[in-house]
Design a protein around this nucleic acid. Structure first.
Length: 479
RNA sequence: CGGGGCAUAGCGCAGUCCGGUUAGCGCGCCUGCUUUGGGAGCAGGAGGUCCCCAGUUCGAAUCUGGGUGCCCCGACCA
C-alpha cells in the first residue's frame, strides 16, 4: 500500500476514494454499488446519529421501526411518488422458493408503508400531531455510485409526522430543517445554505422541499439534508382522515425529513486535506490521541505513567482520549496514521517530556505544534478543542464566501461555472425552462431559493430569459 | 444503455506484441535480532485455479473463439 493519498489538486475524486479507504472508513463490497462501513467510519456515523437523535427527542419525536418490504401496490398509490421512485427500486419477487402473489419493493423511502399505518392510528385531532422518526437502511438502484455519497443501500433517518393543519406541517418541516442546519454548522462545522427547492428538484410527492446545501472542497454543492411539507398528498393516497374539533372529517397534513450516511461524505469533503481526513472535535470518535515514545523498558514505564497522568484527568473532563500504545509500529507511523484519520489533536509524550514535565501538542487542522506543561495540557485541551471546532467552521465559511459569485450577467455565470469556481447567486424568473437551459449549458442546477437571499428589485430581470425575476437563487454543479 | 480501459500473490503492477526451464517486482504479511521524537533496518520465510470455458500447439499467462466480472466517461439521484 502506498503511503499517502492522491493530492486534491491532482484528482479530487481519487483523493476522496483514497481517503475513504486509507482512513478505514469504508470498503467496496462484493455487491456492485454497495459498501461496507468499517468500524472507524461507523463510529463517525454513530456520533452523527447520537447528536441528531437527541435533537429529535428534544423536539418531541419518538423512534419507531417499519418494515423494509413494501407491497408494490402501496408505492403506486401516490402518482408523483411512484413516478419518482419506481425506476430506482429493487423488487423481491420470490420468497421461500415460491413466487410471491404480490412483489415486494425494498423501501427507497417509507412514506407509503408509514402512511398505511397512520391510517389505522389516526382518527381524531387528539391523535395529532404524530411525530415519529425511524433509523433505517433504504435501497435506491442508482446508475452510478460513490462511497458514502451515493450507494445502492444507505443508512439514514426518516422523520414522518402528521398534523391537523397545513401551517402546522409547514412549521414542522421548517423546524426540522433548522435542526439539520444546527447539526451541520454547530457540530459538523459545515456552513450550509438553507432554502426551498425548485419544482424540478423537489421530492416526489411533496408540496415544498426544503434543503441544506454545503460547499465541498472542490466547490461543488452537496445536498446534505432535506425536509418536506407533503401537504395532504399521502393522506389522500392512503385515506388518512381525522375528526376536527367541529366534528368534521379532514385529511391529515404530513411532513417527512431525512439525512443519511452521505453526511460522512460531507465531513470528508468539507474539511479534508492532502494529509487525509480532518474531523471536527464535536464529532470525532477520538478527540485527542496520545502517542507515547520510548527507547527501553525503563523509559516505557515512566512515559506510560505520565500518559496516564494526562489521560485520566482529560477523560474526567469528558474529552475522548485514545492512547495509542501499539508496540508494532513506530511513533512516526502513528503520527501519519492518526492524521489520515483526522483526529483533531495529537499529544506526544516521550522521555524528554517526562524529564521536563511537559507534552507536545499538535493540531491536525493547522499542524501547529506547541509544548505545554503537563498541568497546562489537562487544563487547556477542552479550550483548544473548542477553538479548533470554531476555526474549522470559520474556514469553511470563508471558503464558501470566497467561491460564491453574485451576478445578473449570464455570460459571467457561465464562465464562472465552467471554471468550477463555485456557487452563483443570480435572479431567476421561476420557470422550469430557464432552469433547464442553465443545466444544459453548464451542468449546474438550482440548489435552492435561499431563505435569506437578496430582495428582488423592481424591474430586475432573469439573466437567461430576460423575463422579470421572481427570486434570487443559487446555481451550482452538485454531487 | 452508448463510448473507452482492465482482469497475473492480500494490494499495486511487470511479463503478453514475438508461445519454451522453477512466473517476477514493490508494498503488506510471518519469524528473529537491532530499532522507536514524522511512514525503521537487516536476515530468513509463507503466499499463485495467471478471470472462466473451449480451441490451436510437442508445449499457452502469452495465440484464436466465446463467456463473465470490474473500473472510468456520458443520460437518473439523498
Amino acid at each position: 500500500m502506498s503511503k499517502g493519498v492522491t493530492k486534491q489538486s491532482e484528482n479530487y475524486s481519487r483523493w476522496y476514494t483514497d481517503v475513504v479507504q486509507k482512513a478505514e472508513l469504508a470498503d467496496y463490497s462484493p455487491v456492485k454499488g454497495c459498501m461496507v462501513i468499517r468500524p472507524y467510519g461507523y463510529s463517525i456515523w454513530e456520533s452523527l446519529q447520537q447528536t441528531l437523535d437527541r435533537m429529535f427527542k428534544d423536539t418531541g419525536h419518538q423512534n419507531a421501526y417499519f418494515p423494509m418490504f413494501i407491497p408494490q401496490s402501496y408505492l403506486e398509490k401516490e402518482a408523483e411518488h411512484v413516478e419518482g421512485f419506481a425506476p430506482e427500486t429493487a423488487v423481491v419477487t420470490h420468497g421461500g422458493g415460491k413466487e410471491l402473489d404480490e412483489p415486494l419493493v425494498v423501501r427507497p423511502t417509507s412514506e407509503t408503508i408509514i402512511w398505511s399505518m397512520y391510517q389505522k392510528w389516526i382518527g381524531s385531532y387528539r391523535d395529532l400531531p404524530l411525530l415519529i422518526n425511524q433509523w433505517a437502511n433504504v435501497v435506491r438502484w442508482e446508475m452510478r455510485t460513490r462511497l458514502f455519497l451515493r450507494t445502492t443501500e444507505f443508512l439514514w433517518q426518516e422523520g414522518h409526522t402528521a398534523h391537523a393543519t397545513f401551517d402546522e406541517a409547514e412549521e414542522e418541516a421548517r423546524r426540522m430543517l433548522e435542526v439539520y442546519r444546527t447539526m451541520a454548522e454547530e457540530y459538523m462545522a459545515i456552513p450550509v445554505l438553507t432554502g426551498i427547492k425548485s419544482e424540478s428538484e423537489k421530492f416526489a410527492g411533496a408540496v415544498h422541499t426544503y434543503t441544506i446545501e454545503a460547499m465541498m472542497g472542490d466547490k461543488k454543492a452537496l445536498q446534505s439534508g432535506t425536509s418536506h411539507n407533503l401537504g395532504q398528498n399521502f393522506a389522500k393516497a392512503f385515506d388518512v382522515q381525522f375528526q376536527n374539533e367541529n366534528n368534521e372529517l379532514e385529511y391529515v397534513y404530513a411532513t417527512s425529513w431525512g439525512v443519511s450516511t452521505r453526511l460522512v461524505g460531507a465531513l470528508i469533503m468539507a474539511h479534508g486535506d492532502d494529509q487525509g481526513l480532518v474531523l471536527p472535535p464535536k464529532l470525532a470518535p477520538h478527540q485527542a490521541v496520545i502517542v507515547p515514545i520510548w527507547r527501553n523498558d525503563d523509559q516505557k514505564a515512566e512515559v506510560m505513567e505520565a500518559v496516564d497522568n494526562i489521560a485520566s484527568p482529560l477523560r474526567e473532563k469528558d474529552v475522548r482520549v485514545h492512547v495509542d500504545d501499539r508496540e508494532t509500529v513506530t511513533p512516526g507511523f502513528k503520527f501519519n496514521d492518526w492524521e489520515m484519520k483526522g483526529v483533531p489533536l495529537r499529544i506526544e509524550i516521550g522521555p524528554r517530556d517526562v524529564e521536563n514535565d511537559q507534552a507536545v501538542l499538535v493540531r491536525r487542522l493547522t499542524r501547529e505544534k506547541a509544548t505545554l506543561s503537563m498541568d497546562e495540557v489537562t487544563s487547556t485541551v477542552p479550550d483548544i478543542l473548542e477553538d479548533i471546532q470554531q476555526t474549522m467552521f470559520d474556514r469553511a465559511l470563508k471558503f464558501r464566501e470566497d467561491n460564491t459569485l453574485t451576478t445578473t450577467d449570464y455570460d459571467e455565470l457561465r464562465e464562472f461555472i465552467d471554471n468550477d469556481s463555485g456557487f452563483v447567486l443570480a435572479p431567476w424568473d421561476g420557470t422550469g425552462e430557464t432552469e433547464e437551459k442553465v443545466k444544459d449549458d453548464t451542468r449546474a442546477t438550482i440548489r435552492c431559493i435561499p431563505f435569506d437571499g437578496p430582495e428582488v428589485e423592481d424591474g430586475a430581470e432573469d439573466p437567461v430569459s430576460g423575463k422579470p425575476a421572481k427570486h434570487w437563487v443559487y446555481y451550482s454543479r452538485a454531487y
